[in-house]
Amino acid sequence: MSRESQLVELVTPDGAADGSATVDAAHRAPGRLHRAFSVLLVAPDGRILLQQRAAAKTRFALRWANACCGHPGPGEPVATAAARRLSEELGVSAPPLQEVGVYLYQADDPDSGRVEFEFDHVLVGPYDGDVRADPAEVAEVEWVHPDELADRLKRFPDFYAPWLAGVLDAWRSAAA
């Protein structure tokens, strides 16, 4: 089964489950609000792992984003889906992940015409190991200090996935 034909959980603006749709249907304009997750992996020295999304991605291809993102299936625990995607995309055994907030956003991809409209659970975990990225999912990875990333996001916003700044803000707010 292709990822685009898998089901996602539609939600209300307060995060209550409200049905399901395929990944493809949820991301067609104007977009349908659905549950998602974004994982930040943090090295002992404070750097965070970024991935450049593969060229084959249907939304925001070749943009830099957090360690991994995805969608739990209807009723699937967010942490379970996040652990699966860390393994699939990066070859990483999931560390203990802590949810630090939720970020609701909507963004149109000008290249594909697809729409992200997500109730995004932000998960953070420590990581100090190898990354074996799947080239079908990830073009490149980089560890970067959060202050340097904030500067890059201001100077070159179109190089980054539109959700990344909000994910970083959720993490920073939880740490404050």
Score class of each variant (00 low, 15 high):
Ala133Gln: 12
Gly73Trp: 04
Gly73His: 11
Thr80Met: 06
Tyr127Met: 03
Asp169Arg: 13
Ala65Met: 14
Glu88Gly: 06
Phe60Leu: 08
Phe117Met: 01
Ala136Trp: 12
Arg132Ser: 02
Ile48Asp: 00
Gly91Leu: 08
Tyr127Gln: 02
Glu140Asp: 13
Leu153Gln: 02
Glu142Cys: 14
Val167Trp: 00
Asp108Thr: 10
Val167Pro: 02
Ser38Cys: 11
Thr80Val: 14
Gly15Thr: 02
Ile48Asn: 01
Arg53Ile: 14
Glu118Tyr: 06
Met1Ser: 15
Gly129Asn: 09
Asn66Ala: 15
Ala26Pro: 09
Glu76Ala: 03
Ala94Asp: 09
Val124Thr: 06
Val131Asn: 00
Gln106Arg: 15
Asn66Asp: 10
Val11Cys: 02
Pro74His: 03
Ala83Ser: 12
Pro162Trp: 04
Gly46Trp: 07
Arg59Asp: 04
Gln106Gly: 10
Leu123Tyr: 04
Ala43Thr: 06
Val167Ala: 11
Glu137Arg: 15
Asp158Ala: 10
Asp45Ile: 10
Phe119Arg: 01
Gln6Ile: 02
Arg53Ser: 14
Leu90Asp: 09
Ala61Tyr: 06
Tyr127Asn: 04
Trp143Gln: 01
Pro44Ile: 03
Phe156Lys: 13
Glu116Met: 10
Glu9Tyr: 07
Pro135Asn: 00
Ala139Val: 04
Val23Met: 10
Val122Tyr: 05
Pro74Phe: 01
Met1Thr: 13
Pro77Trp: 03
Trp143Cys: 00
Ala170Cys: 11
Glu148Phe: 10
